[in-house]
Design a binder for these strands. Sequence first.
DNA 1: TAGTGGTCTAGACCACCGG
DNA 2: CGGTGGTCTAGACCACTAT
Lengths: 233, 233
Amino acid sequence: MNNTSRLSWKAVRDEIHDAILSGRYGPGDRLPRDADIAQEMSCARSTVQRAMQDLSDSGIVERRRKGGTRVRAEPVTRTTLDIPITRREIEQKGGRYTHQLIRRTEQTAPRRVQAAFELTEPRLMLRVEALHLSDARPYIFEDRWIDLGTVPEMRDMDLTTQSANEWLVLNKPYSRCDLRLYAQSADAQLAELLDTTVGAALFVIERATWIDSAPITTVKSIAAPGYQLLTGT
Amino acid sequence: MNNTSRLSWKAVRDEIHDAILSGRYGPGDRLPRDADIAQEMSCARSTVQRAMQDLSDSGIVERRRKGGTRVRAEPVTRTTLDIPITRREIEQKGGRYTHQLIRRTEQTAPRRVQAAFELTEPRLMLRVEALHLSDARPYIFEDRWIDLGTVPEMRDMDLTTQSANEWLVLNKPYSRCDLRLYAQSADAQLAELLDTTVGAALFVIERATWIDSAPITTVKSIAAPGYQLLTGT
DNA sequence: TAGTGGTCTAGACCACCGG
DNA sequence: CGGTGGTCTAGACCACTAT
């Protein structure tokens, strides 16, 4: 049982949130100062601060020093997306994970890759194309470009036993990650690799990662038909 | 300039993060107790707590009472996704926003909708099909189901001036939101609505929202070709 | 049941930024 | 410049759960 004489920051958050939902404060309106809310609700200012921080993280309010706290004028649906290692994702669904190295080359990065890394000049990179399978059926095809300047270990690595995906995630943590999600039709090559028909709608995840502004890798992951990305739950 | 005699929680976080990246603590390893780290770094325990909370939110470590703090064994790519109101999204890209109400009916929710809301019995709901346009070109088609028990105001509302999307976002805040992202081929009807060809790969966002376990609405938003969802930046 | 993270408090000072 | 949010501290107690 909760102690009712003490107010938790979640209770404070909910009370403020309810005040917004009820219309007492509309989009763009300014809320009272933390200190005033604290006094009114008989709790410490830091408790209100904690509650406000959560509302701010959720995109409900916006806070500025001196400017105070305001209800966000344009609400957004903000959610957290978890993308696990592909092996993990397959195994969690009960599938048996395998992978195939399709091709491994050193090439000058095309403009698409240059753009993803915000590079102005062409650069030689390691390109790795691989297929992830669940119960021997194609699951995700990945077309990956690796900056050998940032990841020199990759040059002489055996990518048939451990996938580049897994090695990088376990050994090259990043400080920045950009994602791009979209749909794409299967061309002849993709249709064959993913064991589907030409023209099938495929879900694509493009990811680029950096460590302190140094590019690590960018990968275009193309999922076989039926793939879904979930949040919540 | 920062005062160097005092350690900010971000500095503490980065130092712990670096220790993990350097391999001093590998996946699954247990970190020292907050109190010990605090003493070693000469700061308050709550500062370490704040740093650890951030690392935990980012999916770097996992924390349990009595169990301590451990480096996450299976790393994930965790990111925040913002989905604005469709009108706002279009206007921010410089387009002129308009929308069309295609159809409005009361129907028994199909199994897909029942499943999204985790309902066991069929229920009568309001179905609203609408098209969002950017500069008079189709942008997103939405197929929406609204629980009139939770949102009775919707029964007699004029949905031609303000879209259901906008009214709901501004007036019916939710406490829970589930998302499902995938790709789908355009059938004849979708191709015509979105002014594209049959078979085109379309990006789909399915969203379900609740207020305190009461269903509000579920919407399947089907984007015209070329649509991309971005994070980071 | 004991160990560890989670939270609350009261007070202080700092950092940012609107007027 | 002054007002407001952001953070740090030291101490206390609570809540969860591994052992």
